[in-house]
């Protein structure tokens, strides 16, 4: 099960290291955004850096490394990529709607547009079968 770095050819090590650094770096930038952007609706954009190319880079790096190290295609990491891509919209959409709903019900001056349907959420936006 375990593999050593020494089994990996140089080109694979370089490519995989580049992807891993890219992924980790973008995740860090996303976390910096979460920490220092000033409003909630700005901050909701920041984690998508980590979930799009952050996770993508790490997954690619890991796939290249294990494929080169074990001498056979190792692609199960792609499941993480697919899973993150499919679930992030659901979580962020629900969080966004919850935030809009809370801001509206508390009369927050969050620069929200006048007509949103969230206050009728029981009848609307159930198209995803939530």
């Amino acid at each position: 099960m375990t593999t050593g770095y020494a089994d990996v050819p140089l080109w694979a090590a370089i490519v995989s290291a580049a992807f891993i650094l890219l992924g980790a770096g973008l995740s860090l930038v996303g976390a910096v955004g979460v920490a220092r952007l000033s409003t909630f609706y700005d901050r909701i954009h920041a984690p998508t850096l980590a979930t799009s190319w952050g996770a993508g880079g790490m997954v690619m790096g890991s796939m290249i490394f294990f494929t080169a190290a074990e001498g056979r295609p190792v692609i199960h990491e792609i499941l993480i990529g697919v899973f993150v891509t499919v679930t992030t919209p659901v979580t962020l959409m629900m969080l966004g709607r919850a935030a809009v709903y809370r801001d509206r019900s508390e009369q927050n001056p969050g620069a929200l547009p006048k007509e949103t349907s969230v206050d009728r959420a029981d009848t609307v936006s159930n198209h995803k079968g939530s």
């Binding site: 609706y41 909701i44 954009h45 920041a46 998508t48 850096l49 979930t51 799009s52 891509t85 992030t88 919209p89 962020l92 959409m93 966004g96 709607r97 809009v100 007509e115 949103t116 349907s117 969230v118 009848t123 609307v124 936006s125 198209h127």
Partner: peptide, 15 residues
């Protein structure tokens, strides 16, 4: 949602 610049907040199926 995957493109970091935009965030889907709400869809109004009536309108």
């Amino acid at each position: 949602t995957s493109t970091p610049g935009t965030a889907w907040l709400d869809y109004n199926s009536a309108r």
